[in-house]
Design a protein around this nucleic acid. Structure first.
Lengths: 114, 114
DNA sequence: TAGCTTCCCTTGCGACACAAGGGGAAGCCC
DNA sequence: GGGCTTCCCCTTGTGTCGCAAGGGAAGCTA
């Protein structure tokens, strides 16, 4: 069985980047956005989220800045940089192509592919 | 960047099972089927394929039987069992639901999800 | 004061795709 | 015959990464 972990692996960065397209957001907010915008289907654990944010930061795709959250808490806001925006476009494209390839395979109705 | 490895991870078993829906096929043939039916987009390395087949066999989803290939070579043919067929249905469903969830998130056009 | 929520982080673990190796047998070309 | 390619099977080592489980601090509510 493909586990949730396996599935997430292919789209985690993609979803994080996407969540930042409307402006900076802190980590907790990123997880919440993903949860909300998938109707609760996708849940990102904190032990998954924070290392991922650090990876993206290390790659120069997002930039952190400490600030204060809506709830008056100390929070690290991540901003999508130019490179991050380009990466998002590339990731979306890769993902869509992959989904299409799999769909093509699953749609096969004869033993030998056309 | 989501690597090819990350992407494969979510659908490898799915694709293998699918390739067996028309009857037994040996490992090499499974890899070839995937390659052909995705137009060359997806390539399964042998170091990925054989361990995966063994995992599926250990789970009782596929059953091996030694035979002779079309090219007169000794080959291990895998057959989809009843449990394997059920697993395939489940995996397809899981995958499609996941794809739909991601699509929903990517389709967001406002900061706060509906 | 106690307890819940928000927000950040780390460590240890298990799973697994891949690269790189190995082997053996069949077919072909010279 | 000897060499090469193709087919078909396998394993080991390495690196990556999601997750469970931990910890901590600060704000709010009662």
């Amino acid at each position: 069985m493909a586990t949730d972990a396996d599935l997430l692996r292919s789209t985690l960065e993609l979803l994080i980047l996407k969540s930042l397209t409307w402006g900076p957001r802190h980590g907790y907010g990123v997880a919440d956005w993903v949860k909300q915008s998938t109707g609760g289907d996708l849940l990102i654990e904190e032990g998954t989220l924070y290392p991922a944010l650090h990876r993206l930061e290390a790659k120069g795709w997002i930039e952190p800045e400490w600030g204060v959250s809506e709830n008056n808490r100390r929070a690290k806001f991540y901003k999508l940089g130019t490179r991050g925006r380009a990466a998002l476009r590339a990731e979306v494209s890769t993902w869509e192509r992959y989904v299409a390839s799999v769909a093509r395979a699953l749609a096969q109705t004869t033993a030998e592919p056309a």
